[in-house]
């Protein structure tokens, strides 16, 4: 059974469809990159999958672990193993990052009928994961994302992912706003999490992240649809030729 199966998905904000019929199958162990110009619907896809209140599907089906995704609340999706790394991570003043993550992890354990993790066990897990993603321990004590630099915020998203161990991670432009060093650190964190048991959807504008996080498949979105799929070299072609030729191809075919 595929981990995620999207069939003819349509949807967007209010009355406006931004996604116009997407088919995508993601299996465990795979990394899919989704590329495309601004406004092609990449981030909207992530938000619909994660269940943002302002976005809605208007047609098609999505199955996650075989379950109808749209029957699940956003928090149930998370506890089923979905994770969205935000393009603009949100600040929660006064709530320490560590406290927040422990609450999240315990929700997950509760959802699965397992017992909650003690403060001590959590601290050990956190220390281990912080090392994995090269996080300054101070960031765990500070309030969630408050006064974090752009790079720290993105790294924090990967840290959350490392602690929660999702089966499907959707990384929404995790590389945006990062300098090359910060991007390398983030990419290393992502690669650490890759395994045969989980999958990732990496949403990005640029090929450069994919030099470090090498995808199994690359999809190009244009006007709310996947118009081209291929392997790693498709990303390189896009880097060389820009999105203009995709547009031309689509229009020629249309």
């Amino acid at each position: 059974m595929a981990l995620l199966e999207i069939r003819n998905l349509r949807g967007g904000i209010k009355d406006l469809d931004i996604i116009n019929g997407i088919d995508l199958t993601v299996n465990r162990g795979e990394v899919h990159a989704i590329m495309g110009p601004n406004g092609s619907g990449k981030s909207t896809l992530g938000k619909i999958l994660a269940g943002h209140e302002e976005y809605a599907e208007t047609g098609g089906t999505v199955r996650f672990h075989g379950k109808d995704l749209f029957e699940l609340t956003p928090e149930e999706r998370a506890n089923e193993g979905m994770f969205l790394a935000f393009q603009y991570p949100v600040e929660i003043p006064g709530v320490s990052n560590a406290y927040f993550l422990r609450a999240a992890l315990n929700e997950r354990l509760k959802y699965r009928g397992e017992s909650e993790m003690s403060a001590g066990a959590f601290r050990r897990l956190m220390n281990e994961k912080m090392k994995q993603v090269d996080m300054d321990p101070d960031l765990a004590r500070r309030p969630v994302n408050e006064d974090f630099s752009g790079g720290e915020k993105k790294r924090n998203e990967i840290f959350h992912m490392a602690v929660l161990e999702p089966t499907l991670s959707i990384l929404d432009e995790t590389d945006s706003g990062l300098d090359i060093d910060a991007m390398r650190i983030v990419a290393r964190g992502i690669n650490q999490q890759r395994s045969a048991d989980n999958a990732m959807i990496v949403i990005t504008h640029y090929q450069r992240l994919l030099d470090y996080v090498v995808p199994d498949y690359v999809h190009v979105m244009y006007e709310g649809r996947i118009v081209k799929s291929g392997e790693k070299d498709l990303a390189l072609q896009l880097e060389e030729r820009g999105y203009e030729w995709i547009r031309e191809e689509v229009e020629a075919a249309g």
């Binding site: 994660a50 269940g51 943002h52 209140e53 302002e54 609340t73 956003p74 928090e75 999706r77 998370a78 506890n79 979905m82 994770f83 969205l84 935000f86 991570p89 949100v90 600040e91 929660i92 927040f100 993550l101 609450a103 999240a104 929700e107 997950r108 959802y111 959350h160 929660l164």
Partner: peptide, 17 residues
């Protein structure tokens, strides 16, 4: 903010919590 709530939900935390 809605964004804060959505952020929490994507980490598995219910609106009320």
């Amino acid at each position: 903010s809605e964004d804060q709530l959505f952020y929490c939900k994507t980490r598995g935390i219910s609106t009320e919590d």
